[in-house]
């Protein structure tokens, strides 16, 4: 028996979410009195997992996995479950994890609970708390069967330092070319920008910014904060910003530490997608805007005056705290 942790990687190194997923898996293993084993695909040096309580690392080296392939990742996970007798598989909430996990669940006929926000309330039976209805509610979900898959919500659990050996061993089960099935032709990713899913801070603009020509305000603020940029749905529908920035119930979910909404009214569909963020700030010139009811901090004012001022103040703050 064990807890199997799927740690994601990119260009030979762990992705940022690996630490949170590893922490969750290791703490769960501790609660279950078992061992935390990580699967790491094409990671040059997995030893850092030791600081999060991982006991063993199954290290896969497969050049075919240099670009992510969900079906093949699910196959590796399935083989790792067989190898370790895992009772629980812990995965993250990235687009890749949410691509591979249901395939694994289908292969194993295992229950899968995504968007889990805390360690299980009970391990026998296994019961987890997860967000449902786009953050408008929580469900307590029981997972039955021999193996269960838990998808940990980003930023909900955090990292927990713990001692582990992270004993690496080569893991090379047979995974046929047929397991690939899809072929990546090209990846189009802005390397100089922070992805919404990875961001601690997200700066988001709405229709209140009047037009795409004013987005320098959003970009500059995001630049000072090291934040990702996002937008409301109409902004992307009108083509002011790319669809990949659309956040909300029908766009990308946001679960950052800080979400700053500028010129966004706070429609129910927008809030549903961003409410999981820990601290929300709204800047809007209409004191009646619904976002003020959902936010922690707010400024009632004109974005074109407030935001440049905020950028200046943040620059001063950064200079003092550098």
């Amino acid at each position: 028996m064990s807890v199997l942790i799927y740690t994601e990687s990119e260009n030979g190194a762990f992705r940022k979410n690996a630490w949170e997923v590893a922490s969750y898996g290791a703490q769960l293993a501790k609660a279950m009195g078992t061992e935390a084993v990580a699967l790491a695909i094409n990671v040059t040096d997995p030893s850092a997992l030791a600081s999060y309580g991982v006991a063993r690392v199954l290290q896969v080296n497969d050049p075919r996995m240099d670009t992510f392939n969900a079906r093949a990742a699910a196959t590796y996970l399935e083989k790792a479950v067989a190898e370790t007798g895992a009772r629980v598989v812990v995965v993250g909430s990235s687009a890749d994890a949410k691509f591979a996990a249901p395939i694994l669940a289908g292969n194993l006929k295992a229950g899968y609970a995504p968007n889990v926000v805390a360690l299980p309330e009970s391990t026998s039976p296994l019961v987890v708390r997860r967000t449902v209805f786009s953050n408008k509610g929580f469900a307590h979900t029981e997972l039955s069967g021999n193996t269960a898959i838990i998808g940990v919500s980003s930023n909900a659990f955090g990292t927990v330092e713990a001692q582990g050996d992270a004993r690496a061993e080569a893991f090379a089960p047979e995974v046929s070319d047929a397991a690939f099935g899809t072929r990546s032709v090209s990846v189009d990713k802005a390397t100089d920008k922070i992805a919404i899913a990875d961001a601690d801070i997200v700066v988001s603009g709405g229709r209140g910014l009047k037009g795409p020509e004013n987005w320098n305000l959003i970009e500059e603020l995001a630049g000072v904060l090291g934040a990702a940029t996002a937008c409301s749905k109409p902004v992307s529908d009108m083509g002011w910003r790319p669809h990949s920035e659309h956040v909300g119930q029908t766009g990308k979910p946001v679960a950052s530490n800080l979400y700053i909404a500028i010129g966004i009214s706070g429609a129910i569909q927008h809030l549903a997608g961003v409410n999981a963020s820990k601290v929300k700030v709204v800047i809007n010139n209409d004191p009646e805007a619904p976002f003020f009811k959902a936010a922690d901090y707010g400024i009632v004012g004109d974005a074109f005056e407030v935001v440049p001022e905020l950028i200046e103040k943040l620059k001063e703050f950064k200079a003092q705290n550098a």
């Binding site: 669940a105 006929k109 295992a110 229950g111 899968y112 609970a113 019961v127 449902v132 953050n135 408008k136 509610g137 929580f138 469900a139 307590h140 979900t141 029981e142 997972l143 039955s144 069967g145 269960a148 409410n275 709204v282 003020f292 009811k293 959902a294 936010a295 922690d296 901090y297 707010g298």
Partner: peptide, 17 residues
């Protein structure tokens, strides 16, 4: 494979500062 045994709403939010 899963069963939602119970539900709850998020706690009410305090006022904005």
């Amino acid at each position: 494979g899963t069963k939602d045994v119970s539900f709850e709403k998020p706690p009410a939010k305090g006022p904005v500062k």
